[in-house]
Structure formats: C-alpha cells, structure tokens
Simulated scan of single mutants.
Amino acid sequence: MRSRIAAIAAACAFAVVISASPAFAHPGNSAGSGHPGHHPSPVTEVASQLITPLKVAFGPKGSFLVAESFAGRLTSISSKGVKTTVVNAPGQEIAGVSYKDGSTYYFNNDMGTGPEPGGQLLPARLMKIDHHGNTRQMADLSIFEAANNPDGNTVYGVRDASADCLAQAPYLQQTGEVFSHPYSSAPVENGVYVGDAGANAILYVSNTGKVRLVKALPAEPITIDASVVAVASNMGMVIPDCMLGLQYYAQAVPTDVEVDGSWLYYTVLPGVPGESLGMGKAYRTNLHSGTTQLLAQGLAAPTGIAVDRNDNVYVAQLMGDGVSVIKKGKVTNVLPAVMASDVAISGSTLAALTNALAETGGSLITKGLR
C-alpha cells in the first residue's frame, strides 16, 4: 500500500470537492470563533482561481510565490493579487517553492504516465533563480536516489506475520523502491534542505550541488484493525484475518520542511492507510545532535509546516480543518479552511493556500498573527 502525493491529491479532491466553499472571510471580515471579547485577526483573500496551489513562500517586495504544481507553473503574486508567471512548464510538476536572500528555489519534476504518475525514477531537478533572474539546476535528486536509495533496506508493510499468513497477501510487504519525488525545500545560508516524498528522506543540497542524506525517515507503525481493513477493501485489497492486530509499517512521506535556528521541522504523512485515517505527524530534528522530537500526531494529511518568531509551530492539514497551531502537543485550529495545502509565516503575517484541489481553483489567503 504505497503513497504518492499525486494519489493523495486525487483522493482528497474526490472526497472534499463536494464540500462547502472555503471557510475563510473576505477582506475586512473576521474568521474563527475566538473567545468572548476577543476579535480574531481578519483573513484576506489575496488571489483565487489558482490551479492546484500546493506550496507557497514569501517572495521579494511583499510578494508571494506559489507553486501551481500540476499546472506546471510557478506564479508570483503581488500583495494586491496581481499574478505574474515566473516559470511555465506544461507537463511538468512544479513543487516545493521557497525563497531566501533574493533567490527562488523550486523543483521541476518529470511526470510519469500510467495509473500512478511518477511511480518510476525520473529526473527531479532542484532549480534556483538568482536575484539577477538567472536560472540554473542545482541538482537532480533522482541521481542521488539511484546511487543510494536511503530506504532500500526498510521493510514496509507487515513484518511479523508468519510465512503462511504472509503468503495470503504477499503484496503487504515490500522494501523501499528507487523513486525520487522532492516536494518541499528550506533554503539556508549555504544550501537547501529537501523533503523527498519519494525517497522518504530529508536531504541537503549544497550551493555547489553536492547532495547528502540528513535523515532517512523510519516507517510509521499502524495497528491493523477494522478501519485499516476497510481502507484496504476500498482499494480492492484483502487483508487476511491472520494479520489483524499486527503492525503495518507505512512509508513515512515527508510533505514539508522548515528550518528555524538549529532545528529542522517537518511533517510526515504516513502512506496508505495513514492519510485516510488521520495519522499524520509533525516532528523536529536538531541539526547538530540529530535528536528528533514528536511535536504532534493525529493530523489529517499534514502538508505544510511553519514556525513563527515566538517558536510556535503551525501546520496545514489538507484533509483536516485548515491551519492549526501546535503548543505542547495540543493542536488548535487558528484558520478554518477547506483543503489547506500549505502555510508560511513572515514576521506577523501568516499565508496559506486553501481549497487547493477544488475544480474552481484554490486561493492564497493571509492572516495577521497576534
């Protein structure tokens, strides 16, 4: 039971597109229930009719950079909502946009064909546009994946079933395949941290293009119960009774990365059945010691993470109720929205992408932080 961002997007679109319109206020209105006597910050729609907007970053001169991923387009949006196409690559996936010190970073990923586009090793390019407007390729992550395959020895699926039991459903055990799908990026002074949703790993690409492994994400255990059996059944897969109660080790798919000080924050969407059952998690890893801490769990397809100046952590939940803040392991909604695909923070402003997979197009919205 594999998990791919494209497959997740398709499932989410099917499940949520019939929902009500996005739950955010128009300019000048307030959103959120708040508390008696407390007036929530207003939420402003900066731009709409965006095609699969899956990643957002604060850009130069008060602008925003949005990856309209499946449209193959990187768009700059002014504070007044004026759109300018920065990259136009029909047939490609444009993903993981980020910005730092005058340079824009994004991924130009080749899209495969067939029932699961991208399910093979194809070029996955980390691109950089400098402050002069010059574009260059920093690295092709698929080359690193072909040579290293960080999760190649990881056993996904059921590990503890007897031979006779596993023989009834051999498709419920596999090792990590050779596949690269860089999906999120976080630039720092001398390079870029990358969340590779195909490799199930976090990588670092230096400014000279050298790629190294930061962390291969361990599989996420999920107990096989009736809800897991139901998810499998809906996919046309049968889980034999002998596997009930055992652990299913799902692929730990990194969906976003953010660096704040010496900590690298990231969201994980456990592969099928994890995304359907609200089993997403948020972590942080110390870049010096390697210590990893679980920040929150039980998230509904977390696909965006951001940290504010007070070290509060925010997550966007694609299949959840919008954008939430994490404090001491407690997750509290701060921006009700449908299909919130990403969140970014600069100073006292939060930017989010909502309604990201709707047929009518997604929106870029902002909200002031108090």
Rank of each mutant, 00 (worst) to 15 (best):
A250T: 03
A197G: 07
Y156Q: 03
P254Y: 10
G261P: 00
V259T: 07
N207G: 13
N200V: 15
I222Q: 00
L244Y: 13
V158R: 00
T175H: 14
Y204H: 12
K128E: 12
G236F: 11
S142G: 09
V214T: 10
D160C: 09
A250E: 03
L172R: 01
G245C: 06
Y248M: 02
D225G: 14
A199V: 10
A199S: 14
A197F: 06
N190V: 14
G209Y: 08
Y171G: 06
A219Y: 03
P170E: 04
A226E: 13
V178M: 06
E145K: 09
T267R: 00
T175G: 05
D151I: 11
A232H: 09
Y204L: 13
C242S: 03
M138D: 07
K128W: 11
N149S: 08
G157C: 03
N200W: 07
D151T: 14
R212A: 15
N234C: 11
G198N: 04
G209V: 11
Q137R: 13
G209K: 09
Y248A: 01
V214R: 00
A216Y: 06
T267S: 10
L213I: 13
Q247N: 12
V158N: 00
V205K: 01
E189F: 12
M243W: 02
K210A: 15
D225I: 10
P221S: 12
I143N: 03
S185P: 02
I202H: 03
Q137S: 12
A201M: 06
